[in-house]
Design a protein around this nucleic acid. Sequence first.
DNA 1: TTATAATAGTTGCATAACTAACTATATGTC
DNA 2: GACATATAGTTAGTTATGCAACTATTATAA
Lengths: 146, 146
Amino acid sequence: MSNNQFKRGELYSVINGIASTAVARRLQKNFRNAGLEITIEQWSILYHLWKEDGLSQQELCMCTFRDKASITRLIDNIERLGLVERIASKDDRRVNLVYLTDAAKPLQEATYNLANQTMNEALQGISKEEIEIVKSVFQRVYENSK
Amino acid sequence: MSNNQFKRGELYSVINGIASTAVARRLQKNFRNAGLEITIEQWSILYHLWKEDGLSQQELCMCTFRDKASITRLIDNIERLGLVERIASKDDRRVNLVYLTDAAKPLQEATYNLANQTMNEALQGISKEEIEIVKSVFQRVYENSK
DNA sequence: TTATAATAGTTGCATAACTAACTATATGTC
DNA sequence: GACATATAGTTAGTTATGCAACTATTATAA
């Protein structure tokens, strides 16, 4: 990245996710500075498991908008860190359910706080109405493009 | 990716670039379907060279929001495709200037058309006022986070 | 019930991203 | 002019992404 200007005139930059990438990188940096040795992609998995533990890989595909190969390897890495484990479903032997381990617990509060703080910084000076419009526009852009 | 729902309530999804990613993937698919064998990342380099040929790698870093290692390898790949060439600057021997080759010319119109079409589809049903708000918000998010 | 299709997950291959360490050239200061 | 510093670009190592081909299991339909 670096010393750059976000060109106001260019919708290209917006759609291309320049701002999103900047926020993501900032969050990653904040994790690192706090001594949290996980990537934001790994965190996005943990985030959903903290909301509901024991999701299948397929369900994680859907709630993180990734394909199944990406989830396979993300889970591989998070499992290697000892933060989750795969447990085969009894109902359907094709399915792996992904469960948090005790080692993941201490991460929850710290990462939530950093994520909230990062988001608040990112949204400084932006009104609730503007945020609602952005959400609504991106909802439609997503529906138009998926 | 796949069969998913963009959750209206989650700013997380917006900031995380879910919609941007969907648009990017759609554009990549449209390139592929048209028989254009370049990635959208490679295209983002060509896009800036078509606007101004002979940019340095450093300048390409800035206008595509990537770091220099990423640019080195993107140019490696585009050069391997025969679409650009590096020419050492006479003024500063540290600098490589990147020039389009004749082989890149036929791609310009086709990719512009596909990009415009993809963008128009993505923005269907979204007003100019909304687009302006989104641009303005993302400008501020970027400034807050870079 | 048996053949076919669909689904969950894994693996191989290619591209791309970031960080950090490195080389080579320019600049700036004493 | 000499030494320290900054800049442009490359390379190595790790993570992540997408697509396509594959295995194993389950569901459907003849």
